[in-house]
Design a protein around this nucleic acid. Structure first.
Length: 362
DNA sequence: GAGCCGTGGTA
DNA sequence: TTACCAAGGCT
């Protein structure tokens, strides 16, 4: 890791780093996102959780539907876990939804229904780490708290000329120090928002628009022609390829679903009965009252995760009886209702495609 | 520290 | 098409 000497933010020649970010945010930043222009900690909190590792454009629709369904922390705390998952289905990282629900219950039981104010208390809630807690404090309370997300890391890596993968602890520690040192004494909301807007709209991964950037004059990466190589990329690793067979078990227009375990991939969602290979799938089909030999292979679905690739082999089967309904964690879902169910994205696409009569065979 | 945890957009 | 990556946190 290397850190350039410039870019500490306080040269006599240029206005302080924060000052320029704030001025830029007021004229060029984002001001009308659904979670802005409020001091409601709940609304801000939900947005910050949804925005973890997720881009603004993907969040907006989910956020609006979530707020209609759960307008305040008390209602969310009382809500059915399945209903919460239904609102999150398709957004990914489902532990966020489970943690959010749990945290809402903790806000009710441990904080009298009032969202806590200190960094320590907020960080103690599940799903909220150092950066998210700081963002909530800044936006809800105007607190002087440093954040460090992907946008900020990219801006700091370039402006400060910090090389080394930002996911590495050593590099991240340096960036937290930069984040703390550059904080203004006031106007925290436009500063924090401006920093993120800068990273999201100008200081983007490829082809950054340095010509329009308010901190370009003392940007180390720009002056050294290194904007393309900073921030240092994650060292790449070969992802394992895995396979699974899913049973699309139909009976009178309904399909049999199984509840996923609370942790692990797609935790807490509903999905299709699944087996590691065809031999296991055959046994599973028999258990569920279907004859494997009458099944038809549907088109294989390729699905990528952060840490492995998955090939899904769906098999269409007819159930002789509605077996499984008496089992806990099983559900017969009318195919026409697949659209609104708490299903993983590839499963939802498969079932809605099936409902719409989309050709699914090769 | 390193692996786990989703999805959709982009080049 | 493949590969990278985004308002991270938990175990």
């Amino acid at each position: 890791m290397t850190v350039a000497a410039k870019g500490k933010g306080g040269g006599a020649k240029e206005p302080r780093f924060a000052e320029r970010v704030i001025a830029w945010q007021r004229t060029h930043g984002r001001h009308d996102l659904p979670w802005q222009n409020t001091r409601d900690a709940y609304r801000i909190w939900v947005s910050e959780i949804m925005l973890q590792q997720t881009q603004v454009s993907a969040v907006i629709g989910y956020y609006q539907r979530f707020m209609e369904g759960f307008p305040n922390v008390a209602i969310l705390a009382r809500a059915d876990a399945d209903e919460v998952m239904r609102h999150w289905a398709g957004l990914g990282y489902y532990s966020r939804a489970r943690n959010l629900h749990r945290a809402a219950q903790l806000v009710m039981s441990e904080h009298g229904g009032v969202f806590p104010q200190t960094q320590e208390e907020i960080e103690a809630l599940p799903g909220i780490g150092r950066s998210t807690a700081a963002a909530i404090r800044a936006f809800a309370y105007g607190a002087r708290a440093a954040i460090l997300d992907g946008n900020v890391k990219r801006v700091f890596a370039r402006h400060g000329g910090v090389s080394g993968y930002p996911g590495e602890q050593k590099v991240e520690r340096v960036m937290w120090e930069m984040a703390q040192e550059r904080l203004p004494t006031g106007e925290l909301e436009p500063y924090i928002q401006g920093l993120m807007d800068l990273g999201a709209t100008l200081c983007v991964r490829s082809r950054p628009r340095c010509k329009d950037c308010p901190v370009a004059v003392d940007c180390v990466a720009l002056s050294e022609g290194r904007t393309a190589e900073l921030p240092t990329r994650k060292p790449k690793k070969e992802l394992p390829q895995r396979e699974t067979t899913m049973l699309v078990l139909m009976r009178a227009g309904s399909v049999l679903l199984e509840k996923r375990p609370p942790s692990g991939i797609w935790g807490g969602l509903w999905s299709l009965p699944q087996a590691d290979d065809d031999a296991a799938a055959r046994k599973l089909a028999k258990t569920l009252g279907a004859d494997w030999d009458d099944g038809e292979y549907l088109r294989v679905i390729e699905h990528g995760f952060t840490h492995y690739h998955l090939s899904i082999k769906p098999v269409l089967l007819s159930a002789r009886v509605r077996h499984g309904t008496e089992e806990p964690g099983h559900l017969w879902l009318p195919l026409a209702e697949a659209h609104g169910a708490a299903l993983p994205s590839p499963v939802k696409k498969l079932l809605t495609g099936l409902a719409a009569g989309t050709p699914l065979f090769d």
